[in-house]
Design a protein around this nucleic acid. Structure first.
Lengths: 248, 248
DNA sequence: AAAAAGTTGAACGATTTTGATTGATTTTTA
DNA sequence: TAAAAATCAATCAAAATCGTTCAACTTTTT
């Protein structure tokens, strides 16, 4: 197998799995461990991944995430269903805003065949969009460590030059009377700005976020449609306040 | 089989597979290895594909710089010396601009102990800075695939709100009379803007870039100090035009 | 028909890539 | 904590691939 082909394969594996073991790559390529080591060094030097003991990670993976060789498949299925429901709402020609977050990240693979332009404030999103060859603009601003998102006043200013057909946002708290909330005020500012600039906004949350309240208010429930997977009682309850899509 | 027919077949294979082995082409055409080598050379010269060891790869972006992993192994030591020399120029409290590029990427590990703020237009740089926990701002703009950098008009606009004590730039061409050059005009605009906004600018290049001219002009040699590793003759020659730091 | 120009494939040494091996380092296990 | 296991970087020789040269052959020009 050609060097280039191997590199391609490695990056593909990383785009799918976030983390790959050395042995996996060796098996998939049929090359020796030495060769894969060299490949990983080169790809790291070029800034395409990060080596870790035992393999490599996508260079946007939070390194202090616990035990990253095990899949945290608890909500992975749920996330994927939500992401798919969101992707179905996107049509060719649209300008789409994708907020930072693991659920919005899960949308990207479903965008590959669509002729759209994406704007994001998330580094992991940008990396993944790049890999999937989707035309992308990144909002400038201060890089926040914990979420790897670009936030703050500069980010808001940078966004104001764009307008979106649709915006997809992650959120930490969704509550009937307190609306959408998130821990960091600077991040809240960015989310709020995105909603202002979009013709239509969707908030993607797994059911653990429902009935939760976080520190900073982003907007009232009216401002966006909720996409989630939850019981029909919860769905009925929230439907009183705004549109709800149940991706169950 | 006619030359024309062979060329057509090769391009067809590449349209389907992205990467093609020499042996595959030999088998499909029935021609000798030598002939296929010649074909590949010609097609590369015409800009229709890119040769790699063992075969060829598709060249979707017709006019573009050498791909990301080229030379990344051979010049790794040289790059590191250049990066170290650059890092030595950075003092606590500085606001630093780091341009996209593998040499600037190599600076980051040396910044860990310094109390600085970094601004960059490069996704890999941003990821690595994040990893090393260095306060970072990212310039917004259009995400360019081949270099993973943020470029274009929006990037320039986003930069204008900052001012830098020092800027470190990668470059593709350095020439006594033609100055600093780079293949992509949109990237050139960003580099030029960085130089304008910085009190002092440094261009980091391995010696293969000296005496080279690329498509888009960034600035004259006077605009920045060159950090490189090269012979004393080259050093003397370029010292006539601007300050040169030889990291040998 | 002869000469010139262009292709081709084989052969060669030079270069690059590869995989096995070593001892050092890191992680896991006890 | 210490021993065992796994993974690592560095090295080196074998294998694959490379560019170049050259003679045989084909096509075009004169």
């Amino acid at each position: 197998m050609l060097t280039k082909k191997r590199h391609q394969l490695i990056l593909e594996l990383l785009a799918r799995e976030e983390v790959v073991k050395m042995q996996t790559i060796v098996d998939q390529t049929g090359a020796s461990e030495s060769t894969i080591r060299r490949d990983l060094s080169q790809l790291e030097a070029a800034g395409h991944l990060r080596r870790v003991h035992g393999g490599a990670t996508a260079n946007h993976l939070q390194i202090d995430e616990p035990s990253y060789f095990e899949k945290s498949d608890r909500f992975v299925e749920e996330k994927d269903r939500i992401a798919q429901a969101a992707a179905d709402l996107i049509e060719d020609g649209m300008y789409v805003y994708l907020d930072a977050g693991t659920t919005t990240l899960a949308i990207v693979p479903y965008l590959e065949q669509k002729a759209i332009t994406v704007v994001t404030n998330s580094l992991p999103l940008a990396n993944t969009l790049l890999y999937h060859r989707i035309p992308t603009f990144v909002v400038g601003g201060q890089l926040k460590h914990s979420t790897q998102a670009l936030v703050g006043y500069n980010a808001r200013e940078g966004m104001l030059i764009y307008h979106f057909d649709v915006a997809f946002l992650g959120m930490n708290g969704v509550h009937p009377t307190q609306g959408f909330t998130t821990p960091d005020p600077e991040e809240a500012l960015v989310k709020k700005t995105a909603i202002e600039l979009a013709k239509k906004s969707y908030v993607l949350v797994d059911e653990t976020k429902l009935d939760e309240i976080s520190f900073s208010r982003v907007a009232s429930l009216r401002a966006a449609t909720i996409i989630t997977t939850t019981s029909s009682e919860q769905e009925a309850k929230y439907s009183q306040y705004t549109e709800v899509v149940n991706a169950k």
